[in-house]
């Protein structure tokens, strides 16, 4: 199961990130997880929101360069070695993780990481085969 991530192109310009947050907040859209990758000149903001389709429309109408990327939300045991095991499993089958970041969650036994993987279908099969749970968009939203 994959979930939708919103990627936003940001110039390295003062206040640009704040504007994204403000735009979404006006629409009562909640940011559940976020990561920012940047170079000296620009950055890419990646967010998981409770309503990705509406977020995309809202951001685009406000002039942001944004698009949807399919990612996987993986459950990780919240103990030493939890993340390591997942990466090992993927690595064994030569599945490359492009990037990943942690999903903010309170009071749950397991942690969640968001993974961007090129060969998503194969990654999902491998994870399933190894008994590692992934979350659907609905499950994520319900948390």
């Amino acid at each position: 199961m994959s979930v939708k991530q919103i990627s936003v192109f940001l110039e390295n310009k003062k206040g640009r990130l704040a504007e994204v947050a403000k735009t979404l907040s006006h629409e009562k859209i909640n940011i559940r997880a976020l990561s920012l990758a940047d170079t000296a000149d620009f950055g890419v903001l990646r967010i998981i929101v409770d309503n990705p389709d509406r977020s995309l429309t809202v951001l685009k109408t406000h002039g942001f360069v944004a698009q949807v990327t399919e990612v996987i939300a993986v459950e990780v045991e919240d103990r030493p070695g939890g993340l390591s095991r997942i990466l090992e499993v993927l690595d064994q089958d030569n599945v490359n993780v492009e990037y990943m970041y942690a999903y903010v969650e309170k009071s749950r036994e397991n942690a969640i990481v968001i993974c961007r993987i090129d060969d998503r279908e194969r990654a999902l099969q491998i994870l399933e085969k190894n008994g590692i749970a992934t979350l659907s968009a609905e499950a994520l939203k319900a948390l």
Binding site: V44, R46, Q67
Partner: peptide
């Protein structure tokens, strides 16, 4: 950059630059 050409990755932007 053209709004519809963004693919969501930093490497695409760096490549374009």
């Amino acid at each position: 950059m053209a709004a519809d050409s963004f693919q969501g990755t930093l490497s695409q932007l760096e490549g374009l630059q």
